Computed example of a mutant assay.
Amino acid sequence: MHFDIHRHLAEQHAADLRTQAEAHRLATEAKPARELRTRLGWTLVELGLRLAAAPTPKPAPA
């Protein structure tokens, strides 16, 4: 294989790897936002269940 062709293929392969690495980095950065949203959602569900629960009876004033 001619040297220039080999160099061109190596550069193309390196560019493809950089593109894949960038896509992976962006996907990894987006993941914590979903985790935070999930935690927040379950916290709001728990709060709603506590608010909807029957209130404890207060003692009658003496």
Rank of each mutant, 00 (worst) to 15 (best):
M1D: 06
M1Y: 09
M1T: 07
M1R: 13
H2C: 01
F3T: 08
F3H: 15
F3A: 09
F3Y: 12
D4R: 11
D4K: 09
I5V: 06
H6L: 07
H6N: 06
R7Q: 06
H8Q: 15
H8G: 05
L9W: 02
L9S: 06
A10Y: 00
E11D: 10
Q12D: 02
Q12E: 11
Q12I: 02
Q12R: 08
H13S: 07
H13K: 12
H13V: 05
A15V: 07
A15R: 14
A15Y: 00
D16Y: 02
D16A: 09
L17S: 03
L17I: 11
L17Q: 14
L17R: 09
R18E: 13
R18S: 03
R18Q: 10
R18W: 00
T19C: 07
T19A: 15
T19V: 13
Q20D: 11
Q20E: 11
Q20V: 01
A21W: 00
E22Q: 08
E22F: 00
E22A: 07
E22L: 06
A23P: 01
A23M: 08
A23G: 05
A23L: 13
A23E: 12
H24G: 08
H24V: 12
L26G: 06
L26N: 12
L26S: 10
T28S: 04
T28A: 14
T28C: 02
E29Y: 03
A30G: 01
K31M: 13
K31N: 10
K31E: 15
P32M: 03
A33W: 05
A33H: 06
A33P: 02
A33G: 08
A33F: 09
R34K: 13
R34N: 12
E35P: 04
L36N: 10
L36R: 15
R37E: 14
R37G: 03
T38F: 12
R39Q: 14
R39H: 07
L40C: 09
G41A: 13
G41T: 15
T43Q: 14
T43W: 13
L44D: 01
L44F: 08
V45M: 06
V45C: 08
E46L: 09
E46M: 11
G48T: 12
G48L: 15
G48D: 08
L49C: 10
L49T: 02
L49S: 02
R50C: 14
R50F: 13
R50D: 13
A52D: 00
A52S: 03
A53P: 00
A53G: 02
A53T: 01
A54K: 03
A54Y: 03
A54V: 14
A54F: 06
A54E: 03
P55W: 04
P55A: 09
T56G: 04
T56A: 09
T56W: 14
P57F: 00
P57W: 04
P57D: 03
K58H: 03
K58D: 05
K58Q: 08
A60D: 10
P61R: 11
P61F: 03
A62M: 10
A62S: 08
